[in-house]
Simulated assay, not measured.
Amino acid sequence: MKSQRILRALPFIAMAAVVVADLMVGPTLVFLPLLTLGPAFASVSGGVRRTAVVGGLSLALYVPLVAYDHLLGRPQNTLTMASIVGVTGASMLASRLRTGRERELANVRLVAEAAQRVLLRPVPRGAGDVRVALSYTSAAAEAQIGGDLYEVVITPEGVRLLIGDVQGKGLEAVETAAWVLGAFREAAYDQAELLGVAERLEASLARHLSGEKFVTAILAEVHDHEISLLNCGHPAPLVLSRDGGIRLAEPPEEAAPLGLVELGSPRPKPYGIPFEDGDQILLYTDGVVEARDRQGTFYPLEERARLLRAPDPQVALDELRADLLRHVGGPVPDDAAMLLLRRNPAHRL
């Protein structure tokens, strides 16, 4: 990377600038102590050995420059040389600590990637005449997993899907996501109805969650001409019909998220919406619609849904994700997961 090359060249640029300035000005202004910039900058991007070499080069440049400036024998020379040696030693220590942290970070990334492969497995990209596209953007800068979750499974009852958002962040949210995904993968094959799947998830979370923690989620099941939805306190899916219409598939009644039903909150009720040839349905987490730009404006998902008209569903969803990141102007503040379903008999698998 260009920035990395600049950082590696910075120690030599700094020392060269000191040498040139000293040769042009002479002993009237003392630039020589600035040679300590060389090893100091070297510790930013180089290893311990490279930092030591740069420190040695600083001393090698210092001696002839002192002679050129007719400053040999002056007491301050010893102090300046001691400063170069001291700064070089401190920079070598800083370089060692930095490289150690970089190794730890690399290991953390490997663990995160392994956990992601276990929790968020690749989803099938097609089942029958339904094509599936996926996008997941984590708010964690150094880890690729968070509290959002998704799954697509092909069962005897048909294609079943789950998208959800765990309350909270960090490792505890990831652990809860693992519980939900494990329970869904098992219940999706065992239960004849979506409501039975939701009840299994509730039972699993009741053994795991404490207090008033919860998981918002949508469970879906694809049928011949419609899709059945069970909305547990989650943002409503966005429906894009083949005639160009765009609407939110709001549930007939508000329901509680998973984990709160035992507190007396209303249970979710399944409802169906048409899902014909050429129709699309976008399932997403609140990290999408709650993403704000620098002026505090929420991401206008319904206005930008036209980006999903591209011929390839994954390309369309990637374009929507890129637009979301442009709107935010940087990393998303919350995890953002999206599943796009497109019914197209021409791509029957």
Results as ranks from 00 to 15, higher is better:
Gly296Arg: 09
Gly55His: 04
Pro75Ile: 08
Ser210Phe: 09
Thr137Asn: 07
Ala255Asp: 09
Asn77His: 03
Pro122Asp: 11
Ser95Thr: 09
Pro274Leu: 12
Tyr62Gly: 06
Pro331Phe: 08
Gln144Gly: 14
His347Gln: 15
Ala203Leu: 12
Gln191Pro: 04
Arg207Thr: 15
Gly86Asp: 00
Asp243Ile: 02
Asp318Gly: 05
Asp335Leu: 04
Val288Ile: 05
Glu113Leu: 01
Leu240Tyr: 02
Ser135Phe: 03
Val222Gln: 01
Pro345Glu: 02
Ala21Pro: 00
Val130Ser: 05
Arg267Lys: 11
Gly128Trp: 00
Pro11Trp: 00
Tyr68Phe: 14
Leu260Pro: 03
Val332Cys: 07
Val53His: 08
Val197Pro: 06
Arg121Asn: 09
Thr80Ile: 12
Glu102Pro: 05
Ala188Val: 03
Gln167Phe: 08
Ala316Tyr: 00
Asp224Ala: 08
His347Thr: 11
Val180Gln: 04
Asp148Val: 06
Tyr62Phe: 15
Leu194Lys: 04
Glu151Met: 03
Thr78Ala: 15
Pro122Lys: 10
Ala133Asn: 12
Ala9Arg: 12
Arg294Asp: 15
Asp318Ser: 05
Ala133His: 12
Ala67Pro: 12
Val261Asn: 03
Gly46Val: 05
Leu248Tyr: 12
Arg326Glu: 14
Val44His: 14
Ala90Val: 13
Glu276Gly: 15
Met15Glu: 08
Ala21Ser: 05
Phe298Gln: 02
Arg321Asn: 09
Arg185Cys: 09
Asp312Arg: 05
Ile84Ser: 02
Val44Ser: 12
Leu263Thr: 10
Asn231Gln: 11
Ala192Ile: 07
Gly89Leu: 05
Pro156Leu: 12
Leu205Gly: 04
Leu65Thr: 07
Glu104Phe: 15
Leu59Gly: 07
Leu209Tyr: 05
Asp69Gln: 14
Val111Ser: 07
Leu325Met: 07
Gly182Glu: 03
Val239Trp: 09
Gly73Asp: 07
Arg131Gly: 01
Asp335Arg: 01
Glu104Cys: 11
